[in-house]
Amino acid sequence: MEYFLHILVITGIYAILAASLNLIVGYTGLPSLGHAAFSCIGAYASALLSLRLGVSPWLALPLAAGVAAGIGALVGLPALRITGDYLALTTFGLGLIVYSIALNWAELTEGPMGLAGIPAFAVAGFQLSSAGSYLVLVAVMAALTYVVLGRIVDSPFGRVLRAIREDETATITMGKDVARYKIMVFIVGAFFAGVAGSLYAHYITYIDPSSFTVMESITILVITVFGGLGNMTGSFIGAAVLIVFPETLRFIGIPSTVAAPLRQMFYGLLLILLMVLRPQGIIGNYHFK
């Protein structure tokens, strides 16, 4: 039971990540292959704030998300000059740089040793350290993410994003400052990825760079594409299916040294199948151009 609740917590965190990536990739049409970098920054910022400066996790979470958003603005800058596959490659490279910094800036991040003993969230002295109690927090945050991102994409702001996705030049000639919107999208996307990273750090209480590799970015992308580009609900369904389903491998008695590669093979194969058969995902309404 505890294990099942744990899987649900992880699913909630991935749902936030996938939904925030969907804003960038699915709604605005900007290919971004380094989303784990933002959750990495959120996780490390939150962990360091609470470990080194004794900041309460409740305060560390929004601050860390803010830091991730700031970096998001920087990552958004390339999107002003570069588009399409070159942007995909650039964000991929940026993801690697962030990972590389987490791994090598040992004075700050402890390098491959990682940060241990990250304090948990507490409500009136009660530690949210069990999966069950943490699930409540993650569920609230995921719901909040769903509402806020949902409002963003359904608003006039979101309409401009979809216009950029459809035809950037035409959007500019409609008097829209497309550059500003692109930066905003990366800021918001990175903010929520930062929230997810912080939630992860204070849940597992230990983080190291290996949780934020290229494979992580790809996993998030698979969930987003599978659930549906340009559909927030899809991202939540995608997370539920793609995080919970591979766990069944463990239940039928496959050892984890086999289950882990099998899971990734499954993600790789799924990505190929989606591209060939259904590039917009199960309930999406946009595919890569």
């Binding site: 995909a88 790809i218 790789g268 194969l269 590039p279």
Partner: peptide, 14 residues
């Protein structure tokens, strides 16, 4: 091209 790129990423992982 972007679809091909992402499919190639899938092939890589697989």
């Amino acid at each position: 091209y972007l679809v091909l790129l992402i499919a190639s990423l899938g092939a890589f992982i697989f």
